[in-house]
Amino acid sequence: MKSLEELKAIREKMQNQVGLRKEDAETTRVIVGMATCGIASGARPVLNAFAEGVAANGLSDKVVVTQTGCIGLCQYEPIVEIMEPGKEKVTYIKMTPEKAQEVIDKHLMRGQVVAEYTFK
């Protein structure tokens, strides 16, 4: 049985870090469609890939990964929208965990939109 003591240790560690991340105007939002259409098309592993990739690349301070319902483009699911402050929304379609990794590397890390996966 995994103990709750470990969780206490995490709290103590985290509370010493001043200024836990808060969402603000500077935050980039990665939004994954998680309605029936998205889930049936494989949105869960895509969401996991983004959540893990953002944490692994130290982007947690400026990027949040979140979910939305159906936006009416079910045939293009899994759909991921990336909203960066001051920029136009980018919509990636038919995503996979592998494509997610590429989007993290190029778009989130270096600011280059991966045009071939976007909705046109």
């Binding site: 995490i10 836990l20 944490a55 949040v64």
Partner: peptide
């Protein structure tokens, strides 16, 4: 401390 910080 929120659930979505990487450690938690």
């Amino acid at each position: 401390v929120p659930f979505d910080v990487p450690e938690v």
